[in-house]
C-alpha cells in the first residue's frame, strides 16, 4: 500500500496531486482558462440593442421570408440543441469552427441579431466584438438582444430543438 494511510493525509495527497495536474493540464489545454481572469465581469458595449417587440417582429420576418436577418445563438451547443430561435446559428464562445460556418451568411446579412442565455450572460457581447473586430462585420448591422433566451422562452417565443443549421 502506498503511504500515507490516514484519511486526512490521503485527502491532502489526493488534493495536491489533483491540483498540480489540474493546472498543468489547464495550461496545455487549447481552450484552457486564464486562472485570474474574471470571465463574468459584465463588459460595457456600444452595440445597438433590440427590444422584445423588435425581436418578435424579426423572428416572424425570419420565419416568413428567411431574409437578410441572421440570428446568432451564442449559448453552449447543448443549450442550443434543447431549444433555440428557429433559423438561428449556434456560435458558442471558443468555437471558431461554428463561427467559420456562419461567416458566409454573416457577410451578406443586413441585420445580425445575437442572443445568449439572458440575465448576466455576456457571450453575445463577446461574439459581437469578435464579428466586428476580428472578422470585419459592419458594426452598424450588429445588434444584441439583451433579454436573452430565458426572457424569450418565458414570453412563449417560437423555438425549435435539435440541430437547425
Amino acid at each position: 500500500m502506498i503511504p500515507p494511510r490516514s484519511l486526512p493525509l490521503q485527502m491532502l495527497a489526493v488534493a495536491a496531486t489533483a491540483l498540480a495536474l489540474a493546472f498543468a493540464a489547464n495550461s496545455l489545454h487549447p481552450q484552457g482558462l486564464e486562472s485570474s481572469r474574471d470571465y463574468f465581469a459584465k463588459p460595457q458595449h456600444s452595440f445597438q440593442t433590440v427590444t422584445m417587440e423588435e425581436f418578435t417582429d424579426f423572428v416572424t420576418y425570419l420565419e416568413d421570408e428567411a431574409g437578410d436577418i441572421v440570428y446568432l445563438d451564442a449559448r453552449r451547443s447543448g443549450q442550443y440543441q434543447t431549444g433555440h430561435v428557429p433559423g438561428s446559428w449556434n456560435v458558442p464562445r471558443n468555437d471558431p469552427a461554428a463561427l467559420e460556418a456562419a461567416l458566409g451568411a454573416l457577410q451578406v446579412a443586413a441585420y445580425v441579431v445575437i442572443y445568449c442565455q439572458g440575465g448576466h450572460c455576456e457571450d453575445s457581447i463577446f461574439l459581437a466584438e469578435d464579428l466586428v473586430y476580428r472578422h470585419g462585420i459592419d458594426f452598424s448591422i450588429v445588434h444584441i438582444f439583451e433579454p436573452g433566451w430565458e426572457a424569450w422562452q418565458k414570453q412563449g417565443g417560437a423555438e425549435r430543438a435539435g440541430a437547425d443549421r
Binding site: A18, F23, S35, Y39, F40
Partner: peptide
C-alpha cells in the same frame, strides 16, 4: 476567482 479554481480543479 474561486469559480475559475473550481472549473479547473473539479474535473481534474
Amino acid at each position: 476567482p474561486v469559480e475559475n479554481l473550481a472549473a479547473i480543479g473539479v474535473p481534474a
